[in-house]
Design a protein around this nucleic acid. Sequence first.
DNA 1: GCATTGACCCGTC
DNA 2: TGACGGGCCAATG
Length: 107
Amino acid sequence: MPELTFKQQVEALVRKIPRGRVMTYGQIAAILGAPRKAQAVGFVAHYGDPELPWHRVVNRHGRMAPGYPGGMPTHRAEVEAEGIAVDPKEFTCDVERYRWWPKGGRS
DNA sequence: GCATTGACCCGTC
DNA sequence: TGACGGGCCAATG
């Protein structure tokens, strides 16, 4: 068993996020088996692979990342491009509606 | 190997 | 009702 680092696990999970779906940092951390490591997920998101769809990852409020390259407006544009409705004022998406789980991806 | 950072989360004032 | 701080963990320099 290759003991993958958190970075590897988070990256692998983010890559599996289908288009038009989003996940929360706390959710990802919980799936990895550590709901307290949400902060670590955010850290990996910044120092991890920039090619990954981090725009599909939002905080538990469904809000965009303030530290996202280009700013929240860019993050919002990327999310909207996925077909996700985002509030242009609060920069929040309906996390309860677009939340995606890696378990088979049941709609 | 130590100290700091970071795109978070929760509880409390 | 809104704002503030502390705590958790991992990766970086």
